[in-house]
């Protein structure tokens, strides 16, 4: 957030005097998030990367698993809209009067799922957190396609591309194209998780977001935990997540909501902001730790930095 976002790109015109006009901002599409240098790096990573670990969620052949909805009974979960009515446990309904869906332990199949946040809030940073998230998704997805049986990319708010399934290394290029075409969309975490849960088997879930609302994330992590998914939270970390901007008189705008605040940044305010950011970081880490999930704060490399060491942490997390 060190560099100011051009006014024209921020949509609503600031109001003189500080009263914000609440209007969401729709940032322009990210131009070329995957330059040739990144593509070469990605190919190198996929060629030399150790075997990635996925969740064994399917024991039967892939085709059968794709068609079947059977398996070992693992438990119940409350029925939500969109669940297959055939999976409703009517006996449980007769006992409790509430609808439950039987969760079946499917046949082993190693898959991975990427839950990608498309919020305009990711426009901040240079390069933006959005670009970093897309490249992170590309690396994680490429590793999954290289070593696992399948990959599902869930991008709530992505329209027709909200849920996309990929399989095999050959789909890497399609994955990149799909990621490039994802729009900006602000979707609340509950809705995003609901979309995720309806997408099918999760396998290992890689949740890429800025996690600026830890409380909302906490509730959704609990829901995912009940589904038995293993979650790795990826936060493309920016310098602004630790250090507030230098002193000055500026207007701060939340791109997701359009809300603005005029502040005069001085030493006292910077100190207070550092404390608030530290509180946020601790809350993010605490939320994932309490749910037994992994939280990775991945430093966003520079825009033209396409070196392997920057992605070693990704490789390490995908290996474990």
């Amino acid at each position: 957030m060190n560099a100011a976002t051009p006014k024209s790109s921020m949509g609503a015109r600031p109001i003189r005097g500080g009263r914000e006009r609440v209007k969401p901002v729709v940032p322009p599409p990210v131009a070329a998030p995957f330059p040739p240098e990144f593509r070469r790096l990605l190919r190198e990573l996929l060629a030399r990367a150790p075997r990635a670990h996925g969740e064994r969620v399917e024991r039967l052949p892939r085709r059968r698993a794709a068609l079947g909805q059977s398996g070992t009974f693992a438990g119940h979960r409350p029925y939500v809209r969109g669940d297959d009515p055939r999976r409703i446990d009517w006996a449980a309904y007769a006992r409790s009067g509430e609808l439950f869906v039987m969760q079946l332990e499917e046949e082993e199949r190693r898959v991975a799922t990427i839950l990608l946040d498309l919020s305009p809030r990711l426009v901040v940073g240079t390069p933006s957190r959005r670009v970093a998230a897309l490249r992170l998704a590309a690396v994680i997805g490429g590793l999954a396609l290289r070593h696992l049986d399948g990959l599902t990319v869930v991008a709530p708010g992505g329209g027709t591309n909200a849920v996309s399934a990929f399989a095999g290394v050959a789909d890497v290029e399609r994955l990149l194209v799909q990621l490039e075409q994802l729009p900006w969309a602000e979707v609340a975490p509950p809705t995003a998780v609901q979309t995720l849960l309806q997408s099918g088997p999760l396998g290992r879930l890689h949740w890429i977001s800025d996690f600026v609302a830890p409380r909302a994330v906490e509730r959704n992590l609990a829901a995912l935990r009940r589904r038995g998914g293993r979650v790795v939270g990826w936060l493309p970390a920016l310098p602004d997540d630790v250090e507030p901007p230098a002193r000055g008189y500026l207007t701060l705008q939340d791109p997701a909501t359009g809300k603005r605040v005029v502040v005069t940044v001085d030493d006292a305010l910077r100190s207070a902001m550092r404390r608030e950011l530290a509180v946020l970081r601790r809350a993010q880490e605490r939320v994932f730790a309490q749910s037994g999930s992994t939280f990775v704060r991945w430093p966003v490399p520079a825009a033209d930095d396409h070196r392997r060491p920057d992605y070693e942490e990704v490789l390490r997390q995908c290996r474990t």
Partner: peptide
């Protein structure tokens, strides 16, 4: 009007910091 308009993902934190300092936002 401030000449700099910066996007931030931490607007709630900014507001909390301002509130902690008991600073009021400049109002027109």
């Amino acid at each position: 009007r401030p000449r700099r308009v910066e996007a931030t993902a931490h607007l709630p934190q900014w507001e909390a910091a301002l509130q902690g300092l008991r600073r009021r936002r400049p109002r027109a």
